[in-house]
Design a protein around this nucleic acid. Structure first.
Lengths: 159, 159
DNA sequence: ACTGAAAGAACTACATC
DNA sequence: GATGTAGTTCTTTCAGT
């Protein structure tokens, strides 16, 4: 039941992760297949968990969320329950888009997106700093955005 | 021509950034509007640059890209041309999903996703380390993934 | 800006190979 | 697995308010 991805699957995934509004018809023409064949493959890819979701990526700047900031966080206590609690609390902050527990000189690395530096200060004072057992915090304020994509590198997935 | 977003626009954006495969018909029912009204608003949001693109988010683990790593990079030289060149070079690495020039004790922060630690070592040796003027590099290996979303916080965008 | 209707296109299911 | 057909639903346009 847990099949590997063949070349056609990978091509479909790559097309969809760049533009998921393309019609199955166009994908089919691209791959010289029938629309039904493509349709069934996509459904399978969805059901087998290769595709998480289909989303619109909004333009942060145009929307008015102009500041991206990464925060390295070190906790004072490192019991499992503290780590878990931290993840759970961060989950509730809509400003936080990503949170990873990491190795290195931080325990966690967060990516947050909000309107501006003022909004960031408010975030820190009213939300982040209230977390118990919070130790050191180091902010990396994005001053220029380079590459920024959700497109995974599928070329390395041999088959 | 550069209109502000009203509440209806924000609701549409919020729906689309969570599921862009929803039909305009369903959005319309949700908002008690006609499909045409919703359709025209979406087109406007696209044309005015509020929506960048529509993408499928793939499941990294299922696909076989199990390792997320953040890298803090410090360059030796800090002239504008070095900074620009770094951004350009990183752009060519498909393993790098995000790259920001930051303030703090790094010049750049990169997010990379690849198969495993071995693939990371290969990446560093065959790509990253070849960049001229590369100074210190610090890796933050994700050992647990917490929150991970592309959904922006639109509640703060007052109107 | 929104509505409603209508044409065209796409989705999805089904029968078949 | 893939195909072609057919029914259903959605997208997109247009005239009207």
């Amino acid at each position: 039941m847990k099949k590997n991805l063949d070349k056609t699957d990978l091509k479909i995934l790559d097309i969809l992760q760049n533009d998921c509004r393309i019609t199955t018809k166009k994908i089919a023409e691209n791959l010289n297949l029938s629309t039904t064949a493509v349709f069934e493959r996509i459904k399978k890819l969805e059901n087998q968990g290769y595709i998480d979701k289909y989303v619109a990526l909004l333009n942060e700047r145009t929307i008015g969320l102009k500041q991206t900031i990464f925060i390295g966080v070190k906790l004072k206590g490192h019991t499992r329950s503290y780590l878990q609690k931290f993840l759970a609390q961060v989950d509730e902050f809509p400003e936080v888009l990503e949170c990873y527990q990491v190795s290195g000189n931080f325990d966690f690395l967060l990516k947050i997106v909000l309107a501006d530096i003022d909004a960031y200060e408010t975030f820190v004072q009213t939300k982040l700093s209230l977390i118990s057992e919070l130790g050191n915090v180091h902010s990396y304020i994005a001053i220029k955005k380079g590459k920024n994509t959700t497109t995974l590198d599928l070329t390395s997935i041999g088959n």
